[in-house]
């Protein structure tokens, strides 16, 4: 297992960027609006414009270029399959042939547009949401009307990711001490099953002890949701510019 990225536990990025000074609710709403517009945008020009807006957001958030690029290039298997097959499966004007398969111009364009939308949403999420402390994200969602139970579940989950990670490290060390090396076969798969089963039992028992202690101190099933105050001038200004650029994206699609 790859270690849990450090940014899970601490906010990343320079604290003084424009995006960092925004109210968490503004950032959540901006990200949601961006995603809807990027998916709704018609035509490759509009989708590339959305990608441009997303790149702008990354600059405003002062995200480190290298991490952003690495995220973008780390294509999932699924995405790779989509991009490779689309040119050959969309019918249209022949662009080139490859071992009996014909790639169409329409297919290339379709693949490009899928890649543009997916990258645009990912960049916007990186700029607006991933750079925020995840606890703030939970409180912002609750303030925006997400059911309190769901928001509380998210805050608990974030806490337990850390607990699990420590527990996993401990159990994995015990396996290594007994010379376990992962290979293909029932032995390995079963060993991992037991590892995760043990992880579950230990973590659930620990969570029960924690919960009993929390109840003792008056916890009633959800956290007091932080009062995030009122959105300031910066939030309204950012919101206006953001909405205007997204309207422009949609307008490009209608031309």
């Amino acid at each position: 297992m790859t270690p849990v990225p450090a940014h899970l536990l601490a906010p990343q990025g320079p604290a003084r960027s424009l995006v960092a000074r925004l109210d968490p609710r503004t950032r959540v709403l901006a990200a949601a609006l961006f995603a809807v517009v990027a998916v709704a945008a018609q035509g490759i020009m509009a989708q590339l414009a959305a990608l441009g807006v997303a790149a702008g957001l990354c600059l405003l958030a002062r995200l480190p270029m290298r991490t952003v690029l690495r995220r973008l290039l780390a294509l999932e298997v699924f995405m790779a399959l989509v991009l490779v097959t689309l040119p050959f499966t969309v019918p249209g004007q022949t662009l080139f042939t490859l071992g009996g398969l014909t790639a169409s111009a329409e297919g290339m364009e379709r693949a490009l547009s899928v890649a543009a939308i997916a990258s645009a949403v990912m960049l916007a999420v990186q700029a607006l949401l991933a750079s925020m402390e995840t606890v703030a994200l939970g409180h912002a969602l609750a303030r925006l009307g997400v059911p309190a139970r769901l928001a509380t579940l998210m805050l608990f989950t974030l806490r337990y990711v850390e607990v699990l990670h420590q527990e996993y490290g401990r159990l994995r060390l015990a396996m290594r001490a007994r010379a376990f090396r992962p290979r293909t076969g029932w032995h390995t798969w079963r060993a991992y099953g037991w590892l995760v089963g043990m992880l579950l039992v230990n973590s659930v028992e620990r969570s029960e002890r924690i919960h009993a202690a929390m109840r003792l101190r008056g916890f009633r099933g959800h956290y007091p949701i932080l009062d995030l105050g009122r959105a300031g001038g910066l939030d309204w200004g950012f919101g206006a510019v953001h909405t205007a650029s997204l309207a422009l994206v949609l307008a490009v699609g209608m031309m």
Partner: peptide, 20 residues
Amino acid sequence: MPRVAVLSAVFFVASLIHLP
């Protein structure tokens, strides 16, 4: 809540556990 959150955390990190 605590038990559901533990399982949710397991699901969250499962995508990082690679089995040969």
